[in-house]
Amino acid sequence: MIRVRNLTKTYPVRDGRRTILDSISFDLARGQKLGILGRNGAGKSTLIRIISGAERPDSGSVDRGMSVSWPLAFGGAFQTALTGRDNVRFISRIYNSDFERNIAAVDEFAELGAYLHEPVRTYSSGMRARLAFAISMIIEFDCFLIDEISAVGDARFAQKCQLELFEKRRDRAMIIVSHDAAYVRDHCDHFAVLHDGQMHFHDDFEPAYALFKDLIGWSPPPDTAPETAPETGPQTASIPAIQTTA
């Protein structure tokens, strides 16, 4: 059980502080999968970071009754001067996990071959993503935090990830944050829309998605607001497909 209570977070901006999360509370039980939709900059990633413990909220609490992963597929903690193997060893040490078993698992899953013994800075972005995902899979958590995971390597690898995360670990709790409505719909059983610091919860996808569309609809048209263009573009395109399958 994860209990989030009255979570408030503000960031300093030029003229004062901007409220990103405004007194958010919810519970997440074991095995529940929460999908959070929201526009870019709505605070989805901030929420994930606070739940993961990397950042502190201004007020409120996160009570983790189960083990919570770091944001999945997150590769930022790589020390690029170190080899893939060294990074696996580091994670194994931090989480007190068996290094020999882990390195075997990563070797098999990420398919990096001899590159595992090379500094990460020599990797291509695809290779880094594969290593990052593989490392995320070596430590077992009760709850996985997933932040915009869709673009991991080629189609074959994406499929492997799918299998590893959503098939083999179907009993785990998850919090998935995305602006890709289809992805959220396919993998979650609870939904929420984050807007203006508030979370709107829905047990079904349809009302959540309707709200999400509503909120997006209020934003300026794509051609006049370039920062919203990339996310509204594909989503509006995928709306009919979703509606037919739902």
């Binding site: 502190r56 007020s59 409120g60 609490s61 996160v62 009570d63 983790r64």
Partner: peptide
């Protein structure tokens, strides 16, 4: 583990 952070 209870995390409370407050600047006051």
């Amino acid at each position: 583990m209870i995390e409370t952070a407050d600047t006051t």
